[in-house]
């Protein structure tokens, strides 16, 4: 474990905690894309199939996987529950959360069948999960750019999420130099994901660092 990977996983953990805190404390779901959250549940379910094979990598690895699966499902449950507790906000979310996820799912499914480490169910599922994760934030970014404004907690959530995968890139470089091993598929998807976040990072930098209003394009 190198510092980049630890910081990356902690940033990922923090992003989910910020999101849950965001929903629970402000008791509103405004500006949160349920589509992105459902995609993340799919990412974790397809990636962590090895939990069922009980060939556990390490205690840390296992508890983090269980946390990511359970917390991402919990977020979707919270958002679904707002259908009754905040019917108006829920309806607004559905009206603004209009990104066509069908294209993401089809594209990543094709990518998984074409580019994978082994043509087995587990490896295709893993590859699907990695490609899906690289674009899963798109509905959320799309919603954010359309609304033009957002609660700072949502922006911090997206930033922490983007930081996690961006930190994985130096992690892979570190591991390549120390272990001589690199996962090309994970690297390619990680670079795509970092590029997807790049324009958001620029906006975040302007808003949070420069304290200027987040006037999205």
């Amino acid at each position: 474990m190198n510092p980049f990977r630890i910081l990356g996983d902690l940033s990922h953990l923090a992003s989910i905690l910020v999101l849950i805190f965001n929903i629970k404390s402000t008791n509103t779901i405004e500006g949160i894309s349920i589509k992105t959250q459902v995609l993340y549940v799919l990412v974790f379910l397809t990636r962590y199939l090895d939990l069922f094979s009980f060939r556990l990598v390490s205690f840390y690895n296992t508890i983090m996987k269980l946390f990511f699966i359970s917390s991402s499902i919990y977020v979707v449950v919270l958002l679904q529950r707002s259908k009754t507790t905040q019917a108006v906000a829920y309806k607004t979310m559905l009206l603004t959360d209009t990104f066509k996820v069908q294209y993401i799912l089809l594209g990543t499914l094709i990518a998984a069948f074409v580019i994978n480490h082994k043509f087995t169910f587990v490896e295709i599922a893993w590859s699907f999960s990695v490609w899906l994760e690289s674009v899963a934030i798109l509905p959320q970014l799309f919603m954010l750019s359309k609304s033009g404004k957002s609660k700072s907690l949502t922006v911090h959530y997206i930033f922490a999420l983007g930081l996690y995968r961006t930190l994985y890139i130096p992690n892979w470089i570190w591991r390549y130099h120390t272990e001589g091993v690199i996962d090309k598929i994970a690297l390619a998807a990680g670079i795509i994901q970092t590029l997807v976040y790049s324009d958001f990072f620029y906006l975040y930098y302007k808003k949070v660092i420069k304290r200027s209003a987040l006037n999205l394009p």
Binding site: N61, K65, F68, H117, K118
Partner: peptide, 10 residues
């Protein structure tokens, strides 16, 4: 042949 990927990362 493909190295059997043991995905040890999250």
């Amino acid at each position: 042949g493909e190295e059997t990927m043991s995905h040890d990362e999250l």
